[in-house]
Amino acid sequence: MTDWLSPEEWAAVQLSLKVALAAMGASLLPGIAMAYLLERGHFWGRQALDVLVHLPLVLPPVVVGYALLLGFGRRGPIGAFLAEQFGIVLSFRWTGAALACAIMGFPLLVRAIRLSLETVDRKLEDAAGTLGAHPAWVFLVVTLPLILPGIIAGMVLCFAKAMGEFGATITFVSNIPGETQTIPSAIYTFTQVPGGEGGALRLTLVSVAISVVALWMSEWMARRVRRRFLA
């Protein structure tokens, strides 16, 4: 691998995978909770929350990145609090890139889960209730398995979005090789310097390969789940 990719390119690939997996993993539980809240919840301000969650989908990524910089930057209110209380610094760190990617991918994750939650037959949940299952158990042993295909689809979308995220990342955490330079930022850098075409092309191929493998894996998992339901 490293014979084919330069150390700089290899670092970008590793970092991208790390950032994307972290973004996907960190958004999973909040994503499920948010989808459930938006689909099933009855509370004041649900619509506003819905808009807020979906905002990154329609806003220019650079705007999201700048907003993150304002909020989570060292002098931002949240960033300063995290740095003082917990020593967590996000700006210009790979964790910041993961945060930016998670926020950009979150609406995709929530949408996919919410769509499959919509198709869950509430009557099955009622039936589980009459069999003695507490609502929390109903969610864990009935609802969750039934929306698993949607969760898998959402995770893949979130992962893909994180792999390709550029605008928000570069605005929030810049383009530091080895720390915040993901595949898209590296490709961008390569296209800006003379003789960088080779590196750009290699990273493009790696990008395509990762996407294909991710799609194939999600299809395979979804098919396994479906086969259990319809066997």
Partner: peptide, 13 residues
């Protein structure tokens, strides 16, 4: 209280 519904409502998974 056990409940048997019109449609069986078995858990498909």
């Amino acid at each position: 209280i056990g409940y048997v519904f019109q449609e069986a409502r078995l858990f498909p998974h």
